[in-house]
Design a protein around this nucleic acid. Structure first.
Lengths: 218, 218
DNA sequence: AATAACCTTGACTGATTGGTCAGGTCTGCT
DNA sequence: AGCAGACCTGACCAATCAGTCAAGGTTATT
């Protein structure tokens, strides 16, 4: 009974193991996001997913290993979203889609975003290599794309780096500073507000680099 | 000798106490920023300012009290910078000055910004009341100012909230994600890069809300 | 049914950490 | 000089936490 816990359907051994690991990772993501790596305790994570602490150590040999897997999972999701920055599309289309996707991610993966932010803020002790390899490569290809747009006169000449940082900062702010935003908003953002915020962010950035990004005419 | 430590000039008792407290707060700011509240240890802070741990407890009764003072000091600096958003100036002047000031703050108070970000990310357990009073009031007055600009047709109609969040996010990103930026940049940003980033951020945002914010013509 | 492999868990441990305290030192004042 | 009050600190707790372990339970396979 203990193994076929709750409402989950029993599957093969491998499926059940995967399911349990996912539950632990989900709980760990929230706890790490809310307390930071140092402030999080294995007991708190165990409580959050209703498992005894010793069981966590059966699936993840150490707190650091568990944390590493949480961060790696976030990075994977980030990478998938990064693909929505299509290098072949027109700047207006590519940027609008990328910004929208990142806003959606901030809404759906608030805790993941916070863990990533926390990790980078603390000097990326775990994911330093990702920054130097995957992220750097991705960034350089996108910088090249933006440069081409500039050379073609499609957008105003701005250093692509500052533009990318602006997009990352603005979109991730809605996850990382969600608490502050919700205090100022007297509650969580509504569907309409998320849409409006996304449109506004797209509008300002696109218009800011010389595109007629707004919904209404110039 | 222990009391007239290092190169500091001896002053009155009160001055020396203030000086020591400042040293501790400076060290604590860095340690809290780099390790988070939970990951920071009093011993690490003590080492960072070259004082025995017991001495820290003489000046600050508990880790939480020390942390609170660090956060309060940051909030004060933030408030002073917030004054550079002059409510009487033209939108282009007010916004450009405010953004520039915030960029400068990100450069000069990286650790403070990180502590604030961390505090808010974890649900503002210490500064919740500041968010609900001071920050909310400040934000509401600036929203009113921006609304007036919109009504006067000075800037395009955008919800002032999303604009403010964009400014906060973008400027603070240069402090909170400094590590990531420096990895991608292969080193710290130069004076010229800071100036260029500031100009670009100002340019995109001002242009994005319908002002001719760039240095060059339209 | 027997067996081996896998999973679960309460109880335990060594190490770390926030905080305390007694006894010492220094400073300013009379 | 002598005293009171402020300051300093090594040594010391009690609590907490990551990680261990042995014993028991469950499942798949033959």
């Amino acid at each position: 009974m203990a193994q076929t816990e709750g409402a989950e359907k029993a599957g093969t051994r491998a499926e059940m193991r995967e399911e349990t690991e996912r539950q632990i990772l989900d709980a760990a993501e929230v706890v790490f996001a809310e307390a930071g790596f140092g402030g999080a305790t294995m007991q708190a994570i165990a409580d959050a997913c209703g498992l005894p602490k010793a069981n966590l150590h059966y699936y993840f040999s150490s707190k650091e290993k568990l944390y590493r897997q949480v961060v790696e999972r976030i990075f994977t999701i980030w990478l998938e979203a990064a693909d929505s920055f299509e290098t072949e599309a027109a700047p207006e289309v590519a940027l609008r889609r990328y910004i929208s996707r990142k806003m959606q991610l901030s809404r759906e993966h608030r805790y993941g975003s916070k863990v990533w932010a926390s990790e980078v803020m603390h000097g990326a002790p775990i994911v330093q290599d990702y920054l130097e390899t995957t992220l750097r490569t991705w960034t350089e290809t996108r910088i090249a794309v933006i440069r081409r747009w500039i050379d073609a006169g499609a957008i105003r000449p701005v250093d692509p780096r500052w533009l990318l940082y602006m997009i990352w900062a603005t979109t991730q702010h809605y996850a990382d500073f969600a608490h502050q935003i919700e205090v100022l908003n007297h509650g969580a953002l509504s569907d309409a507000q998320w849409t409006e915020a996304t449109d506004t962010v797209c509008g300002i950035i696109l218009r800011g680099i010389g595109l007629n990004g707004g919904r209404t005419g110039p």
